[in-house]
Design a binder for these strands. Structure first.
Lengths: 149, 149
DNA sequence: CTGATTATGAAATTCATTTTCATCATATCC
DNA sequence: GGATATGATGAAAATGAATTTCATAATCAG
């Protein structure tokens, strides 16, 4: 973890940036956070250890991490973006419409078929997003719904 | 086409709504439009035949069509939503990052694998979205980029 | 037709995100 | 170590899509 932060700092320096205390806090909190955080959630978390930090800095830092390839923007259609770290390997998402739970999955076969389709259209793919929306086991089984977003 | 509009009008009446001239224009233009229109594009089109119609009405009408199952919201991460009609069968999208071209495709195999994954997680799916981003044949081949959005 | 209710458009509002700008912090050069 | 240039920060303002409000107009039911 410390290693990672140092590496990112070095990359920032190498691209003409400067280090900063606030940003270090944001990055640290981001990598420790549960997956798929919103800016708002992350800002709250950041302020636990550094109350003065503004949401703008969180926005900017996540844009930065995205540019460097450490974060990925997600949009589950909730009105606000979410971010996840790019440290874990590629995966897609199952999103429960009732309780908001997000399950990650990875399927080599689907990926391969996607490549095929893409090539068939002369397309050169750079990224894709696959989200399946529905109801998770708990919510589908008529059990009382959990937390709702 | 006329049939379709009449059918929609009947459904609106049946659910406690009223017919309206403005809405008829919006709906007509929507079904005639190229796929994947933004509200702004559609509003422009609508105003060709009825200059007085406000964007708000276009927003409202598309929400209505979505509720009735005739339209589908899309989000290619451009900042503004797009809508497509639900008349053609289900399909997914290849989106060119350079020129904005959207190619539609349909792949039974991918759909089946998605079902499998979903079931494996005890999930009850209601919808999914698969978008592959990249560069279309023209843009990938280094040819001069086309219109860019 | 009359009354009741929905639809409309303009303007105001909301809300996430971005930009601006004066100030602060960090790196660099001496 | 200090001066200086430049990047980073936070507060407030700006932006922009989408939604809500509200007074007025259109449409439906009896």
């Amino acid at each position: 973890m410390k290693r990672l932060l140092e590496r990112i700092d070095r990359e920032i320096l190498a691209t003409g940036g400067k280090r900063s205390r606030s940003r270090a806090v944001v990055i640290d909190r981001f990598f420790r956070a549960r997956d798929h955080v919103t800016i708002e959630e992350l800002t709250r978390s950041v302020r636990e250890s550094a109350p003065g930090i503004g949401a703008v800095t969180v926005y900017r830092t996540l844009k930065l991490l995205e540019r460097l390839g450490y974060a990925k923007e997600l949009d589950f259609g909730e009105g606000a973006r979410r971010y996840e770290s790019n440290l874990s390997p590629h995966h897609d998402h199952l999103v429960c419409r009732q309780c908001g739970t997000v399950i990650e999955f990875e399927d080599r076969e689907i990926e391969q078929l996607q490549d095929l389709v893409t090539r068939r259209h002369g397309f050169h793919p750079t990224a894709h997003r696959l989200e399946i929306y529905g109801f998770c086991r708990k919510c589908a089984s008529g059990t009382s719904p959990e937390r709702s977003r």
